[in-house]
Design a protein around this nucleic acid. Structure first.
Lengths: 216, 216
DNA sequence: GCAACCCAGTCAAGAAATTGACTTGGTTGC
DNA sequence: GCAACCAAGTCAATTTCTTGACTGGGTTGC
């Protein structure tokens, strides 16, 4: 009851959405590097300083939505059912996401999603800034692990590996779909890949860190 | 080159238009007195003080457009062809406007125009504020006459009469159309009325003020 | 007659936008 | 190498907007 209505807030939200939507539209149409922030600002009918008040960099116009998912892995681990290890929880979640064709798995052939991913993976400056978001994702996941008495170094190592696996699986699925396959066609291989990757991770983490990471 | 484009100006203009349009829509739908300025502000998505920054009063939300026509009579007199008197110029203009079904003549049966005029003539506070705009119209016309060496009092008297004739003719035409006639049906009578009213005015002014006001 | 209320219109304080000029870094032409 | 240029990002000054509270007139219920 303290957040929603309020002319000020709703207009800010609208401006933000307008900026991100306009930017994405222009980027998809002409390419990230061929569009200047001045173009985006003009198309969204705001000034350049205003744009930079909403988004700290040009890249964030595209990547901002990633912020919403930064704590996803950590949350999955924190909220997992009793008796399931962190690796198992992330593995289960990924399998479910695959079945639902969740875009984060890369197994989604909706044209808009594909275009967006192609933009991401074909733009150097975007790729490099994704690292920033990834780092935060790792950090949050590591914190969740440390909360379960995993020693700091091990927690960070495990978090790094887990996040990397999720990303790499997603990217591999995208590659196949970008090469022309449908999500349906890729699905079986995607499941096999996921099981193998998470399986390897479970083995490795079990051997190194003990049974807590991935019980039964 | 110093006025137009500019984010600030264009947004102000848009807000102003949005306010006037939203207000008119609500007023036509529910009646002037049944809509509060808070309603208008909310529907136009601005705050109440902002609304009052754009329009000095609730009535001006409707009447603001009259400001554009305030100098019309004066301009017609100033820009008239040589050899034609002020009364003749206004008379000619009114006849032309009748033929074109210009809304200012009241001889216009477009539903939107009718609804607007009905709103005007059926709302006391609007009618009373129209006087304000009329006064300014008279003042400007009087100034135009004074510029032609008509003595001040005569100029103001003539201006008052001329403006009154224009308004009363318009109102009479509206009454007939509001009673159910079409503009086509009313047209002949409207021309007769106009000729008679301007004719009377020309006679009267000629007798009182001399031939300058209405030569030949 | 009185209390409660609604509405037009105002005010002061603070958030946020525009503006234009600026810095910095990279490219291109020569 | 150098000059010109372009784009990302920043800054200070001014303007506009929102907010919430306020005045004052007018109505309604009691």
């Amino acid at each position: 009851m303290e957040n929603t209505t309020g002319l000020r807030e709703s207009k800010k939200l609208r401006t933000r959405r307008q900026l991100a939507a306009t930017a994405l539209e222009l980027f998809l149409e002409r390419g990230f590097d061929a569009v200047s922030v001045a173009d985006v600002a003009a198309a969204a009918e705001v000034s350049k300083p205003t744009l930079f008040r909403y988004f700290p960099s040009k890249e964030d116009l595209v990547l901002d939505r990633f912020a919403d998912h930064q704590d996803e892995a950590a949350r999955i681990v924190r909220d997992r059912p009793a008796g399931l290890g962190p690796v198992g929880a992330l593995h289960d979640h990924f399998r479910t996401a695959l079945a639902e064709r969740d875009p984060i798995t890369g197994l989604c052939d909706h044209p808009d999603v594909l275009a967006f991913q192609r933009l991401l993976y074909s733009t150097a400056s975007l790729e490099s800034r994704i690292a920033h978001y990834t780092a935060r994702e790792v950090e949050l996941l590591a914190a969740a692990l440390e909360a379960e008495e995993v020693e700091p170094l091990s927690a960070r190592l495990a978090a790094t590996h887990l996040v990397a696996v999720r990303h790499e699986l997603g990217r591999e699925n995208w590659r196949r779909i970008d090469a022309g396959s449908t999500a349906e066609e890729v699905y079986p291989a995607a499941v096999v890949d996921a099981d193998r990757a998470f399986g390897m991770l479970a083995d490795g983490l079990d051997r190194t860190l003990g049974p807590l990471i991935s019980p039964a």
